[in-house]
Each structure stands twice: as C-alpha cells, then as structure tokens.
Design a protein around this nucleic acid. Sequence first.
DNA 1: ACTGTGACGAGGG
DNA 2: GCCCTCGCCACAG
Length: 110
Amino acid sequence: MGDNSNFFERVYDVCREIPEGRVTSYGAIAKFLGAARSARMVGWAMNSSHNMEDVPAHRVVNRNGVLTGKHHFGGTNAMQQLLEEEGVKVKDLKIVNFSAHFWDPVKELS
DNA sequence: ACTGTGACGAGGG
DNA sequence: GCCCTCGCCACAG
C-alpha cells in the first residue's frame, strides 16, 4: 500500500480525482497512464478496488458510456443509482449525454 | 516461470 | 452502422 509504482495504485489515484457528477472511461485512464493499450487492466484494477472506499469505481464506464461494470457492484442497479445520485442520468445502463459528463484525465490532469 | 484472464478498444466484414 | 474478431498487457494462480 502506498506503492505508487504499482499500475493499480496509479489507476486508483486517477479515479480519486474524478469529480462528482463526472465520469470517464477505462481507455482514457489507461491513456493518461501512458498505457493506452492496457484499458482492460484498468477495469481489472477496479476489480481490486472493492475494498477501497475512496475509489469511485462507479464513475468509470466504457468508451460508449455504458455501465459495463455494474454487474461487479453487487447490487443489480447499485452503480446506476450512485451515478444518478450525483446528477448523472442513466438510461438502460447507458449514461445520457455522456460527452457532457465526460471527464478526460489527459486534459484535466496533464 | 508459464498460462490464463479480463469492468476495453480498434479495426474489419 | 452493427456484429464479430483480434490484440493488448499487468496481475493472479
């Protein structure tokens, strides 16, 4: 823990910077980390973030704005509910007006 | 050390 | 423009 040299830790660090009501994609995080081709790893990293309460994994979706990871949230619509509580509308597992809510770490953190 | 894996993404049919 | 296939690479067993 506290080992920022780990890829997973870097992913968590970026996730913590995602503002409320904003969302980003696995690929965007991967790209920011300089590993654009490791988008799948980002998703897998979130799998290990279950214990971490300070990592808003619900704000990370795929490039289409679809809540692909909602099945890993335990509840059937837990992820969607978390997003809507932040003001992000979700229609049929897809974020409404995705581009408006999109938060690009490359633009915001670079 | 080797293999499988996976909450993705891009390209081709 | 949708559907299928392939590539991708860090991590767990």
